[in-house]
Computed example of a mutant assay.
Amino acid sequence: MPDFEVVELGPTDHPEPGEEAPEFTRPLVTDEFWEDRTLSELVSEADSRTILVFTPMTGSFLAKYVWDELADRNWDDRAGQVVGVTASTPYSVKRFLDDNDYPFAFVSDPSNRVAESYGVDHDLDGMTGISEPRVAFFALDDDRTVEGAWVATDWPDFPDYDDLEAELGLE
């Protein structure tokens, strides 16, 4: 039995395969710098697909677990461009990258509006006006068309990573 309550997050209205992913402009944070970038710029600069990975704030065990798993599975070499999306500030993301040495870049979205536009936001229990992304994955082509998607239905919820890799074409 877990030491925490599993919470059903309810339905989402997230982009499905074949639909265009919502555009956004937010700071892209790497281990070296951060600067505003649009999603269109990110996908057009990728050598192949772009995978957006929504996780809760960088200090959470959920975020750490997801990013450890993706690093262990070498998604930086296998998945095309992998970009995290988090409600954390650029300063928090930079600290997270420094502490963990991940080879991924992150979109900093403290307002959580990107997650809202993707339909993957959820309110934090007992914190009025505070929301964060649920764990979600979107594989995008260079035109921002969604090629594959997985969205958590519970908190906490993680994908079966073997099935996720098959869904996103990483086999």
Rank of each mutant, 00 (worst) to 15 (best):
V6L: 13
F24V: 11
T12H: 10
V7G: 02
D3K: 12
A21E: 03
V6E: 14
P2Q: 05
V29D: 08
E16G: 03
T30D: 04
D31M: 09
A21Y: 03
E20K: 14
G18T: 05
D3Q: 12
F24R: 14
T25H: 06
D13W: 00
G10D: 07
P17C: 07
F4G: 12
P27G: 06
E8R: 07
F24K: 12
E5T: 15
D13A: 14
F24T: 11
E20T: 15
T30F: 02
V29A: 10
T30M: 03
L28G: 02
D13T: 10
E19D: 13
E32Q: 11
D3V: 06
E8V: 08
F24I: 12
D13C: 06
E8L: 06
F4I: 14
E16K: 15
P11I: 09
D3P: 13
P22L: 01
H14R: 14
H14E: 13
E5F: 13
P15F: 03
E20G: 11
D13P: 03
P27T: 01
P15I: 02
F4Q: 13
E23G: 09
T30A: 05
D13M: 08
V6K: 14
V6S: 08
D31Y: 02
E19H: 00
E8I: 04
G10F: 06
H14G: 12
P2R: 06
G10M: 08
E8S: 12
P11R: 08
T30P: 10
E32S: 12
A21I: 01
P2Y: 05
V6Y: 04
E32Y: 00
E19A: 10
E8H: 09
E32V: 02
E5W: 07
E19L: 03
L9Q: 09
A21F: 02
V6R: 15
P11L: 06
P22Y: 00
E19G: 00
T30V: 04
V7K: 12
P22H: 01
V6G: 05
G10R: 05
P11T: 07
G10Q: 05
E5D: 14
E23M: 07
E32I: 02
P11A: 09
V7M: 07
P15M: 01
E16Q: 15
G18D: 04
T30S: 15
L28S: 01
D3Y: 13
D3F: 14
T25V: 14
E8T: 10
L9R: 04
P27E: 04
D13F: 07
P11E: 10
F4K: 10
P27H: 03
P27F: 00
R26S: 11
D3T: 08
F4H: 15
L28P: 01
E23C: 05
L28Q: 00
P15N: 02
G10C: 06
G18A: 08
L28H: 00
T12V: 11
P15W: 00
L28I: 01
R26N: 11
D13K: 10
P15G: 02
H14I: 05
T25E: 14
P22S: 08
P22K: 02
V7F: 05
P27K: 07
P17Y: 01
G18R: 00
F24A: 11
P15Y: 01
P15L: 03
E23P: 08
D31P: 04
D31R: 13
G18W: 02
G10A: 04
F24L: 11
P15C: 04
